[in-house]
Write a protein that binds this DNA or RNA. Sequence first.
DNA 1: CTGAAAGCGCTTACAG
DNA 2: CTGAAAGCGCTTACAG
Lengths: 331, 331
Amino acid sequence: MATLKDVAKRACVDVSTVSRALNNSGYVHPDTKARIYKAVKELSYRPNVLAQGLRQGKRHTIAVVVPRMNLTTFADVVQAAEEEARNRGYATLICNTEDDPKIEQESLGRLRNGFVDGILIAGTSHCSRLLRDLHSSGLAVVQVIRRQEPRLSSVVADYQTCGYEAVKYLASRGCRRIGLINGDSGLAPYRERYQGYSRALKEFGLEEITVSVDKPVNTFEYGYFCTESLLDQHPHLDAIMAAVDIQGIGALRALKDRQMSVPRDIRVISLTGNAIGDMLETSLTALEIPSYEIGRKAARMLIEEIEAPEGAKPPAQHLSFAATLVERESS
Amino acid sequence: MATLKDVAKRACVDVSTVSRALNNSGYVHPDTKARIYKAVKELSYRPNVLAQGLRQGKRHTIAVVVPRMNLTTFADVVQAAEEEARNRGYATLICNTEDDPKIEQESLGRLRNGFVDGILIAGTSHCSRLLRDLHSSGLAVVQVIRRQEPRLSSVVADYQTCGYEAVKYLASRGCRRIGLINGDSGLAPYRERYQGYSRALKEFGLEEITVSVDKPVNTFEYGYFCTESLLDQHPHLDAIMAAVDIQGIGALRALKDRQMSVPRDIRVISLTGNAIGDMLETSLTALEIPSYEIGRKAARMLIEEIEAPEGAKPPAQHLSFAATLVERESS
DNA sequence: CTGAAAGCGCTTACAG
DNA sequence: CTGAAAGCGCTTACAG
């Protein structure tokens, strides 16, 4: 790989002149410039980003820390963030934590090494302390999907309203026994969905019906077995709310296996709709959240924080997106 | 952020001694070592990875270049590759190309900058030249899912056998008019699926029935509209093979909308099964490919190439995984 | 308009 | 066992 020195030698100038020519900083005689560009081309020189980063204290790289990507909203978030970052000249590092605090902690630890300028994170809430340390040591941090720490910026969906609106909608369709399949209430999005659900039920004078089973939460199996359990305990259930699509898909399958007809016998709604809901044999009514937009905006917010001049860093900002109800066949 | 110098000052030794202590290279007196570790802890010092990389010519970072991640096998591949890389002390950069050669070219260009040690790529085949240049300039390269360039290592599934076995299976179930929904034959996986399909049909004395519509290939819509088109032209079709799950899901939905019963009226099979096939209301028979394993092995192969001593780089290796037929409800 | 020098934070022969 | 020096590839004041 050619270096600045190679280019300088070939163009018969000093490296500093080459640097100035390439960065358009300071005057360089047009003829010299031409000679330099020629040499650059001939050697197919590309500046070493590591050396630039080391010298300038900027890496033009962000990290995205998420639990996983397969069949979750995080696939969209990561993809959108990467696109936004790329368009702004940043590279994107990815870290999957599987929601394991140990992996999360280790990954964040590695990011303390001057690798990246900022971190986009959907964390477990077990590393808030570390995250604040990173932030005060100069790294930009934006929380995405999950807001666990009010002192750090965030871009999320309004999950509480999702929960509330879903109940309201189902009640308007005549449902009176509405079960909720949710997730770890230690994580903000699940907790908020529950709060919305609970508040709405109170308003409508209905009873809370929840359940959980011993499976990973964000899965088909969880949806499937929670549905079984709900029906075992409440045979007259007339609606199921699932926190995420993949649970809703599990619910649909469980209902089919019980020969229950959707939506005739029971209605199903997802509280975090994604593209997949529209593709099912019984398409899934959902409160759709703009995951792509969330990823994009979060990356933008992060990069703006990175590029804000030292000392004029913006205070924590919290952006929340409304979900929109999309009626399909399951309700 | 504390630097080596800060640690050295606090421990009253030279930076070189600190470096040796931390890397366990060369002798350091136990007492000195203790003093150094103490200083490291007190300052919560972390070595600057950029500086290390610049000095050692290693970045401990790989890039994964894929078209997209949402609802594709690439989500698994990327996740597995990241996990494998992380376990070996490497960070993972992600680049989505949307199969746009311009984006791909630009992304690869950026990677020439000494950012990464190696590249894992599912490319468009439009950048083979550039890829070979990168490789000969010293970057490790492994192709994943798509093998477009025989001179570079690869880890893929045996798509031709997928196509062949699917026909054989359907024929054994009595199917005689088997339609294929496929994709861009410029891409190896699609081309190979077609070859397997074609070869099997010939052996069984059956007629090729293919179609394509003007939509992005790897989508629900493509599967949906291809199914419509197939049925319009061949009302007596008795089986549909879809290149990927998401097309198969589109096919199932199109058949439902035509009030055709699966598998009674027509059988459906996916040639690249993933987890999702098992979760559907009509679960999807598929040739399942081990996408997670593919990602893992590809990352491992890449890192082995990176870490092979200069001059002893292994020749191009090609690893191919067999798919396994999983019978479900759709066939 | 151009060059020489210092320095980003580290590692690694080389003396001693 | 330890320190001084050179250097990875770049940028940026500072002279001239």
